[in-house]
Design a protein around this nucleic acid. Structure first.
Length: 657
DNA sequence: GGACTCTCTGTTTTT
DNA sequence: CAGAGAGTCC
């Protein structure tokens, strides 16, 4: 039997909820992961002789893996009845099984990289009547538009109207490109991320038996972090739930919707509640933050209009401490602001620094902060994900392998030429290579090799060796293992001959480590023999290129990346108008959707705190006058006069316990 | 080539 | 708003 004694009444009620729809509105730090895992485990425990499975849907793979582990450790014997997936991975699995109904073969490829999507979009453009887009419109600029159409579930027939309403001049051409793009994905047996969900939806809509099968298999459906769900995902969800039982359990927080620009929105939550006529249970108890932080967060979020009237405040469960928990620091200048952060964190013992975090609205501020900290001898790093290699050697290697796999991709040729220039100082004209390829009826890879060798003595011996010896084997037999190995011989050569600036060496070193970690992982999982180049590249696409963080280093991250995390000491920097809130929200006005989302951003940042919250701002940034953020005023840590006055500001501290 | 003005465009992230 | 890039002039 599960031990539920550590839970509060609301949590226990949620865990014990069985049949029918329910919406759990849970604030940050309210223990929802535990509620979800306990509930799923309890249901499995109570039904040992049943065969239904439980489906949990999450926003990220990381959250899915974590939840799966936690449930499996509670009820290991029911492991095979647990399915915890992202909307994307669930859709992918359905399409691999039943995709033939809509013209897909089970071995379709997922287009992860934008470069691949641009190539496909270019082909879609080529198929339109005149093959031309309006002035200044490129595949690169059109792709986000296409993604949005797919995510808003706009059919090919409705695309024209939607584009015209968005005031595109040549809506007709664009609508036709959109149609071609959707058709090309199916034709070529490839799907991009939005396409994955869109086609799964179309499968469920067109084939009731598939839908019914899913409804029989999954006796209960749980959704975590519903606030990130976009329209397409919501439509999928509606098909998954068995209308006879409506066993749907949803966890969400409407005060943490910070991805409206990505298709999430508050209205969807109220639509869900209405569509399923859901009972609502609130979990306002907060176990993460000190009471002083909770008080400030409650004050701030109250300024958002349109929150449901019955919305309860967060209730702090931690004991108040006597130390000052919330500090506000004001400076004349951004440099001083960062210097203070560096000094303050510097006072922390090294091993505690990884428990601190510096948060800002944008990466720009954080990059400056990282270099300032490093200069004062405090190790810090920008904790953003990296999807592509950044050093020239690895970019070159990766693009050449991709070119071997997709011989007519201009995008990979472009990267290969650019990286080759960084490495060898030789400028290869990619249009030349492309026209030579066309004339000689050859592919871009061979044409590239010929262009390099044509440069004769200019090319270093390392590069020449590789192109002469290993590239033909790659080109003719897809032998990428020896190519990869020999490429590194050339890179090491270059490095010895011309030890470049430290930064570049660092980046190459990091990329190289990521590459070799990946090689180790993939060969130990599948063995070298069974791996085709195509498979290798597909797996590499999914592999994060982010190096391991240095030890005892201070993480610096944009507020968005901090969701779901917690830290002892939070430094929220750059609390000025036009930053947090962003200039766009300021322009739209105090009660705009954008401003409300900025307020939620601030709310999310504050509620990461376990021990102290340090808010800072400067009256001048890069030589420009700045007003302090209205949020400082709203959370009640700055006096209104102070907010509006433009006089010089003494750096001072306001401490609130 | 360098200093200047102008116009345009863009933030945040997961899959 | 603020930075990038284009265009202009000397």
């Amino acid at each position: 039997m599960m031990d539920l004694s550590t839970l509060n009444d609301n949590q226990r009620e949620a865990v014990n909820w069985r049949d029918g729809p329910i919406l759990i509105l849970a604030g940050p730090g309210s223990g929802t992961t535990q509620v979800l895992t306990y509930r799923i485990a309890s249901i499995l425990e109570e039904t040992p002789d049943k065969y239904f499975k439980i489906l949990g849907l999450t926003a990220t793979n990381r959250a899915a893996a974590e939840m799966h582990e936690r449930i499996a450790s509670l009820v290991p014997y029911a492991r095979n009845r647990i399915r915890i997936k992202t909307f994307h991975s669930f859709s992918e699995a359905q399409l691999r099984q039943h995709g033939s109904h809509i013209g897909l073969r089970p071995n379709f490829t997922v287009l992860v990289q934008d470069a691949d999507r641009w190539t496909l979009l270019d082909e879609a453009i080529g198929r339109t009547r005149n093959g031309m887009l309006g002035y200044g419109m490129t595949a690169e600029r059109l792709l986000p538009v296409v993604s949005r159409l797919i995510e808003n579930n706009v059919g090919v027939k409705e695309a024209f109207k939607a584009l015209r309403n968005d005031s595109f001049d040549d809506a007709e051409t664009l609508a036709s490109v959109y149609g071609n793009y959707r058709a090309l994905m199916i034709e070529k047996n490839v799907l991009d991320f939005p396409g994955l969900i869109a086609e799964a939806l179309s499968l469920l809509e067109k084939k009731p038996p598939v839908r019914e099968l899913i409804q029989v298999i999954y006796g209960y459906i749980c959704v975590d972090e519903f606030q990130y769900t976009n329209l397409l995902q919501y439509k999928i969800l509606r098909h998954l739930v068995d209308p006879a039982t409506e066993n749907l359990f949803v966890v969400a927080d409407d005060d943490q919707i910070i991805y409206q620009w990505n298709g999430a929105n508050p209205e969807r939550l109220w639509k869900l509640r209405e569509d399923f006529n859901m009972r609502v249970l609130r979990l306002p108890e907060n176990y993460r933050c000190p009471p002083a932080v909770i008080e400030r967060a409650n004050c701030l979020i109250k300024y958002n209009s349109g929150r449901p009237a019955e919305k309860t405040e967060l209730i702090a469960q931690k004991e108040p401490s006597d130390e000052s928990v919330v500090r506000v620091k004001m400076f004349d200048d951004f440099e001083q602001e960062i210097a203070w952060v560096a000094e303050d964190i510097g006072g922390c013992p090294a091993h505690e620094r990884a428990r601190c975090v510096i948060l800002a609205r944008t990466k720009n501020f954080l990059m400056q902060t990282v270099s300032a900290l490093e200069q004062s001898g405090i190790s810090a790093y920008l904790a953003v994900r990296k999807d592509e290699f950044e050093s020239a050697p690895l970019q070159w290697l990766h693009s050449v392998l991709r070119l071997a796999n997709a011989r007519s991709s201009p995008e990979y040729l472009r990267i290969a030429c650019r990286a080759f220039f960084s490495l060898e100082g030789i400028n290869l004209d990619m249009r030349d290579i492309m026209s030579h390829a066309a004339a000689g009826d050859d592919d871009y890879l061979r044409s590239f090799a010929r262009a390099v060798l044509a440069r004769g003595e200019e090319v270093s011996s390392g590069a020449r060796n590789l192109i002469e010896e290993s590239l033909p084997r790659l080109s003719d037999h897809l032998d990428f293992w020896s190519f990869e190995e020999n490429a590194f011989a050339w890179f090491e050569d270059l490095q010895k001959k011309d030890p470049v600036a430290d930064g570049v060496i660092d980046e190459y070193g990091e990329d190289k480590e990521v590459w070799h970690n990946f090689l180790e992982e993939i060969t130990s999982c599948y063995g070298k023999e069974g791996i085709t180049l195509h498979f290798f590249l597909q797996e590499l696409d999914m592999w994060l290129k982010t190096p391991d963080p240095p030890e005892d280093a201070v993480p610096c991250l944009p507020i968005h990346s901090s969701r779901g995390m917690e830290f002892d000491h939070v430094y929220l920097i750059g609390m000025v108008e036009d930053q947090l809130p962003s200039w766009e929200a300021v322009k739209k006005g105090d009660d705009s959707r954008e401003m409300r989302e900025e307020r939620r951003n601030c709310f999310v940042a504050m509620t990461r705190v376990q021990k102290t919250l340090n808010l800072s701002c400067s009256s001048r940034i890069h030589g420009r006058e700045k007003k302090f953020s209205r949020f400082l005023y709203e959370m009640g840590v700055l006096e209104p006069e102070r907010f509006s006055s433009k006089n010089e500001i003494e750096p001072r501290t306001l401490a609130i316990t």
